[in-house]
């Protein structure tokens, strides 16, 4: 068997609902433990051990929740868009399920990025909000998520809803590079990226470690939510099937 065949076999097994359901269920507790540990490391590191900023004092400690939220708001959207594309092109149901399962948690991260940014902006910029490119494009991202959620719940037929919302998610993906480069392309109060310049990040190690721990914790938390939601979606869609029957009656 060639490598490609093996990959396809693996892919098919993963896409088999019962298999995915079981593997996801076994992973969940480990993901939960890792998330909690990383969140503790990130919070203690960020709130206690990282030094206060020389300009912003302790106020800058909001960075440890704001930046990971903002990263996740874009990351989750990209997961949604890519899975929407896979569903639209290859009709793989699991992709539609993953996209759908990401919408609420993605909107939550976007909301958190906006709210914590606003709370951070008040003491540092002297205002809760400005209509600049970064903040506006992030607000548009929130509306894209809400539009996706609204569209899905407005259409009863699951396939039609998946296609319509998938197209919306794909079209909206144009907003992601706009958010990312908004601080470069337009004048703004928002500070430019400091971490993504990987060769020479302009940030101290004592700040970088809690920031990256928190970012990884948020990513694992997202994985946790997506797996729980996807398992629910699978049960719902396959409720008449033999494996679901065996699963629920054996408990």
């Amino acid at each position: 068997m060639s490598k490609v065949d093996k990959l396809w076999l693996w892919f098919h097994r993963m896409a088999s609902p019962a298999y995915f359901y079981n593997i996801a269920g076994r992973l969940l507790p480990w993901i939960a433990v890792a998330t909690i540990i990383l969140m503790l490391v990130g919070s203690v590191g960020g709130l206690v051990y990282a030094p206060a900023d020389y300009q912003q004092g302790d106020g800058f400690r909001i960075i440890y929740v704001h930046v990971p939220s903002a990263w996740m708001s874009m990351f989750v959207y990209m997961v949604m868009a890519v899975n929407s594309a896979i569903f639209l092109i290859w009709h793989i149901k699991l992709s539609d399920i993953v996209a759908r399962s990401s919408a609420v948690i993605g909107a939550s991260f976007t909301f958190l990025a906006l709210v914590t940014g606003s709370i951070w902006g008040k003491p540092m910029w002297g205002t809760w909000w400005i209509w600049d490119a970064r903040l506006t494009s992030e607000l548009i991202l929130l509306f894209l998520y809400l539009g996706y959620i609204g569209l899905r719940s407005a259409i009863d037929d699951r396939r039609v809803a998946g296609r319509a919302a998938g197209i919306l998610a794909l079209v909206g993906a144009i907003n992601i590079p706009i958010i990312h480069y908004s601080v470069v392309w337009w004048n703004t109060l928002h500070q430019p990226a400091s971490v993504s310049k990987l060769d020479n990040p302009s940030i101290e190690l004592s700040m970088l470690i809690p920031l990256l721990s928190m970012a990884l914790a948020f990513k694992l938390f997202y994985l946790f939510i997506v797996l729980v939601n996807s398992r629910s979606e699978l049960l719902e869609q396959e409720k008449r099937s033999q494996w679901v029957k065996e699963l629920v009656t054996s408990q």
Partner: peptide, 15 residues
């Protein structure tokens, strides 16, 4: 929090 208590803790709380 160096005088930023309201801002820092409300951010973490809402998250």
């Amino acid at each position: 929090m160096g005088g930023y208590a309201g801002y820092v803790w409300s951010s973490y709380g809402i998250v």
